[in-house]
């Protein structure tokens, strides 16, 4: 079973700040990591390979330094990594990102399954999985929490919805996004790290993908970020004084005035 795992390198924290002068994110001093949601995708891919054989290919679009994320994926059990990197890919929105991944997947040999994390830590969109599926004209199942069965070109999975879970079946190949409930990602192994250090990660750019430059990066993006800002806190309210009895009485009277009681 050949599995492709799509992953993204993201800043290792959500506690980012905006530089008031340039109105851009301050990225200095923040370590980059594999998007945590994608580590579940890697683990599930590796587990499927351990059960059914085949290989796990990790693929990522990003700047040259995203190579480290792919190497880390290899240390976690992926067989190979492919980096989609080109200055022309910069500034891509989810559509242009999906389109770039789509062009790369066209180049890949046979695969049975594409797994993505449910969303990224930085963009929080969760759109690349379903958009990639649509471009590849493949079935898509979101929020998968368990792969129950894979046999005869079909799979049966469990996926989370707001009020419970659904058992879904799909033909293969298919695209899944997975949630953290699906597994506990393993840690890297020493042999895996050694393998990742010696692995060479091919880099595919506009030329290798034979890409239409109008469909990648900022020029291929439909959306524009007009501005970014930090959320504002509501101003401080009223703190009741006095002993416990006074405070509670005060609260009850306010809640009554406001129509809550």
């Amino acid at each position: 079973m050949n599995v492709v795992v799509c992953l993204k390198q993201v800043p290792g924290t959500t506690q980012v700040k905006i530089d008031p002068e340039t109105n851009t994110l301050i990225r200095q001093g923040i370590e980059n990591i594999i998007n945590p949601f994608d580590t579940y995708a890697i683990e599930e891919g590796v587990r499927l390979r351990e059960r059914f054989g085949g290989k796990v290919t990790a693929i990522s679009m990003g700047p040259p330094q995203a190579e480290t994320a792919l190497k880390e994926a290899i240390s976690l059990g992926a067989d190979e990594g492919i980096l989609l990197s080109d200055p022309a890919f910069a500034g891509a929105d989810t559509w242009a990102t999906s389109c770039t991944l789509f062009m790369a997947l066209r180049k890949l040999e046979k695969y049975d399954l594409i797994i993505c994390g449910r969303q990224t830590l930085d963009g929080d969109t969760g759109q690349v999985g379903p958009q990639l599926a649509e471009m590849l004209a493949l079935p898509f199942i979101a929020y998968v929490s368990q792969i129950e069965e894979v046999a005869d070109g079909e799979m049966r999975v469990r996926r989370m919805v707001e009020d419970g879970y659904e058992i879904m079946e799909s033909s293969l190949p298919t695209v899944l996004t997975v949630v953290k409930e699906i597994n506990t990602p393993r840690l890297p192994s020493l042999r895996g790290i050694a393998r990742s250090k010696s692995a060479s990660i091919p880099v595919w750019g506009v030329e290798e993908l034979n890409a239409d430059p109008d469909k990648v990066g900022l020029s291929g993006s439909f959306t524009r970020v007009v501005r970014i800002f930090s959320p504002q806190r509501v101003c401080r309210g009223e703190i009741f004084q006095g002993d416990v009895e006074d405070q509670v009485d005060c609260l009850i009277s306010r809640l009554k005035d406001d129509g809550f009681l």
Binding site: L187, L190, R191
Partner: peptide, 9 residues
């Protein structure tokens, strides 16, 4: 976990 990480090797 230690075994998976090859620590006993």
């Amino acid at each position: 976990d230690l075994a998976d990480a090859d620590m006993f090797r």
